[in-house]
Simulated assay, not measured.
Amino acid sequence: MTKKIAEAWPPRAYKNVDFLNSPEARQIRILCELEETERRFKEENIEDTIVMFGSARTMPLKEAKSRLAGLEKRFAGKKRLSQKDKEELRLAKANLRNAPYYNYAMDLSHKLTKWSMSLTSKQRRFLICSGGGPGIMEAANRGARKAGGASIGLGISLPFEQGLNPYVTRDLQFEFHYFFVRKWWFIYLAKALVVFPGGFGTMDELFETLTLIQTRKVEKKVPIVLFGSEFWNGILSFDTFVEWGVISPKDLNLFKIVDTTEEAFDYIVKFLTKEHLLK
């Protein structure tokens, strides 16, 4: 055994990388994602967030229009489209239909950030928080950046989604391995939630939050805004939940469906002012 190896042996457990990455150290890694995140939030004096999320596939309206126009031009000379061409065209049209929500999210984030920055509190209150990825998450962080404010990105390590969007404030960039720890930080500091059209991940976050509030595991009052009545009423019949007796009529008051940034902004600001600022 060389002198260099002898001096380094035995390694301290908290410096043993092989152990820290082992199944036996899973609880330690979970604690790290809880404690390190909390320390950074405390250093930045962050106690309140407005969480915004939706589809990672949503793109800016201008980009969606350009992509569809490019496809239509490419297919214009074809007498018969292949199944692949048809699917590509269908997806481009769907992206264009969904694209306005990117702009809505960016505009709402901009308005809420401007409002937050106007508060006289010494704390950095009601910062925009997203999942840090593309789509609606990017729009949320982008709107805050445009307003000149900070925003949070709670990223998650996924094989098909690498890195955070460029609009997340550098000192507020996070990358989680464990979904449930990331969910904890979404809910723990959230004072409002805005949900835009999205897929399974969006539904997961929405219904988990509704369940926690319904069962009073989250005791604070959190306004939940569902943006886009065409989407929400098209994929979910909330009244049917009541008709089948699986939720109470009063549970429909846990959220509000809106179609404009002005309506969403007024509802959230009025709620937060009453429940947090005036108290």
Rank of each mutant, 00 (worst) to 15 (best):
G148A: 03
E219F: 10
P134V: 09
G198V: 09
G201V: 09
I224N: 00
T202I: 05
A144V: 13
S248M: 15
F180W: 05
I213Q: 01
V181C: 08
Q173K: 15
Q214I: 03
K220P: 00
G149W: 02
F200G: 05
F238W: 10
A139H: 08
G153N: 02
E138T: 01
V194F: 04
E243V: 14
G135F: 01
L254W: 09
L226K: 01
V225L: 06
E175V: 14
D239W: 14
F196A: 00
A144F: 05
F160P: 01
G153S: 08
E243L: 15
L158K: 11
G163H: 06
L193H: 06
S157E: 12
F231Q: 00
G228Q: 01
S157V: 14
L252T: 12
W184M: 07
W232P: 07
Q162N: 10
K217H: 06
S151K: 02
E161Y: 08
L236F: 12
E243N: 15
I187S: 08
I136P: 02
D239Y: 15
I152L: 10
V218R: 03
N165T: 12
Q214F: 07
S229T: 07
R182S: 02
R170E: 13
K250W: 08
K220L: 02
W185H: 07
K250S: 10
G163L: 11
V222W: 08
P197W: 04
Y167S: 08
D171W: 10
Q162I: 13
E243T: 15
L154W: 12
G131D: 01
N253L: 10
G148V: 14
V218N: 04
R145F: 09
W184T: 07
A147W: 05
D204H: 08
E138K: 04
G199L: 08
G163F: 12
Y188A: 00
F207R: 07
F196Y: 10
F179W: 07
A150D: 11
G133R: 06
P197F: 02
M137Y: 04
E175C: 12
K183Q: 02
I187C: 05
L252Y: 02
V218G: 00
A192T: 14
G199R: 05
W185I: 03
T211R: 05
S248K: 14
